[in-house]
Structures are given as structure tokens and as C-alpha cells.
């Protein structure tokens, strides 16, 4: 058998990561205390903006054709949106979390 090169489509690897991450997300989010559900939403907002990696690829593409010009434009706007979300999301979460205090004494 080992003589036959069995190549698994990279899609399957990605799908495996995805499915496992859904389960990780399920268990991690159930353990979040209800008192922190609002910060949970704002921080999930911030991290889902890791889509910025796509914006960086599109915005930095070599300018060789009219298509790549368009890609740069789309990438730039996506980059601005994602960065608003990243900075806004993490900072507002930080501001909220700083307010949670225990009883004095």
C-alpha cells in the first residue's frame, strides 16, 4: 500500500480544522459566564476581523491588470473596515472588562 501515493485534498484538512473548531467553540462558549456575554460579542467581533489577512492579500496585489486594480480597491476598503473592527472591538472589550470589579474589602 505504501507505494501508492494517497494524496488527501487540502480541503479535507481545512474541513477537519473547521469541524473541530466548531466543537471547541461550542464548549468554550458554554463556559463563558452570562455576565460577560456582551464582551463575548464584542471580542468575537474583533477576532472575526482576522479576515484582514484576506484584505491585506487583495490590497497588496501586484498591479498588472485592470483586475488587480479592482482587487486593490476592494482590499483597501475591506482593510479599513476590518481595522475599525479590530481596534474598536478589542478596545471596547478592554474598556468593558476594566469595569468589572469585585466587592471592595
Amino acid at each position: 500500500m505504501e507505494h501508492v501515493a494517497q494524496v488527501v485534498d487540502p480541503f479535507i484538512f481545512r474541513l477537519s480544522i473547521f469541524v473541530l473548531a466548531v466543537f471547541v467553540g461550542y464548549f468554550v462558549v458554554w463556559s463563558v459566564t452570562p455576565a460577560l456575554h456582551t464582551p463575548l460579542m464584542s471580542v468575537t467581533n474583533a477576532i472575526s476581523s482576522v479576515i484582514v489577512v484576506g484584505a491585506l492579500l487583495a490590497g497588496g496585489v501586484a498591479n498588472v491588470s485592470s483586475g488587480s486594480g479592482w482587487a486593490r480597491g476592494f482590499g483597501f476598503v475591506a482593510l479599513v473596515f476590518a481595522c475599525i473592527n479590530i481596534f474598536g472591538g478589542f478596545l471596547v472589550t478592554q474598556r468593558m472588562l476594566a469595569m468589572y470589579k469585585k466587592k471592595a474589602k
Binding site: 479576515i51 492579500l57 487583495a58 483586475g67 476592494f74
Partner: peptide, 30 residues
């Protein structure tokens, strides 16, 4: 906070559309 979070969601959604558009027009970069 609720409207801020809603506004942030809309930005993620739009960023996804724009990144896909970028990938559609410059697939070699991706």
C-alpha cells in the same frame, strides 16, 4: 453597545464580501 455591536457585524459582513471580490478579480494573489 447593542447598536455598536450590530454596526461591527455589518463591517465584518462587508469586509467578507470585499475580500471575496478582491479574490475574484485577482485570484493569482490568493
Amino acid at each position: 453597545m447593542p447598536e455598536l455591536v450590530a454596526a461591527f457585524h455589518s463591517l465584518v459582513g462587508m469586509a467578507a464580501v470585499l475580500v471575496a471580490a478582491g479574490a475574484f478579480y485577482a485570484p493569482e494573489a490568493f
